[in-house]
Lab assay of single mutants.
Amino acid sequence: SEFSSRSGYGEYVQQTLQPGMRVRMLDDYEEISAGDEGEFRQSNNGIPPVQVFWQSTGRTYWVHWHMLEILGP
């Protein structure tokens, strides 16, 4: 990996993601499973900070930056 740390990767995702971009989950996290795909909606200063609309659940759920792989527009 070109990223030395999880936080470095998270910063990359945070700087790159734009609303509407497709993402894939890298880790299991509460209701969301690794491999689930969705659409980035928004972020804020909460914890976790990233709101994604997940195809698997049909609704939005908040996750962490480093848990997401960017699939593209």
Rank of each mutant, 00 (worst) to 15 (best):
P19I: 07
Y29Q: 02
R24P: 04
G46K: 13
Y12N: 10
E69H: 03
Q42K: 14
E39C: 14
G38A: 00
D36V: 03
S4A: 12
G46E: 14
V50I: 06
W65F: 07
F53C: 07
E2S: 14
N45K: 09
E2Y: 15
S7G: 13
E39S: 06
Y9C: 09
E69P: 03
Q14M: 12
Q42G: 15
N45F: 07
W65D: 01
D36H: 01
D28G: 01
H64T: 00
Y61M: 14
W54F: 15
D36I: 02
D28E: 05
E37V: 12
L68F: 06
L26M: 13
Q51V: 04
S1D: 15
Q14G: 06
R59S: 14
G20Y: 04
Q15D: 09
E30A: 08
R6Y: 11
G72S: 13
S5Y: 12
W65G: 03
G35F: 01
E39K: 00
P48C: 08
G38T: 00
L17H: 00
G38R: 03
P49Y: 06
G72E: 06
M25Q: 06
F53A: 09
M67C: 05
Q42A: 08
S43T: 05
E11T: 10
Q42E: 12
G35A: 10
Q18S: 09
M67T: 03
E37Q: 10
R41V: 14
S4M: 05
S7M: 15
P73G: 06
F53L: 14
P48I: 09
M21I: 06
Y29A: 08
Y12V: 03
G58D: 11
S5M: 12
L68I: 12
S1R: 09
F53V: 11
S4P: 10
V23T: 05
T16Q: 09
R41K: 15
M67V: 02
F53I: 13
S4C: 15
E2I: 15
D28S: 06
H64I: 04
M67W: 05
M21W: 07
E39A: 04
R22Y: 03
Y9H: 09
Y12T: 14
W62E: 06
V23S: 01
W54R: 02
Y29E: 08
R41A: 03
R22G: 06
S7L: 13
E69K: 10
G10R: 08
W65Y: 08
W65E: 12
V13E: 00
E69D: 06
G72Q: 06
G10D: 06
Q14F: 03
F3Q: 06
N45I: 09
G8Y: 14
Q42I: 11
N45E: 13
P48T: 12
M25I: 00
G35V: 00
I47T: 14
E69A: 07
F53T: 08
N45P: 06
S56K: 13
D28C: 05
P48W: 02
G35S: 03
S7Q: 13
E37C: 07
E11Y: 11
G8C: 13
R6M: 13
N44L: 04
N44F: 07
L68S: 00
N45C: 13
W54D: 00
Q15G: 12
Q18P: 08
H64D: 05
P48N: 02
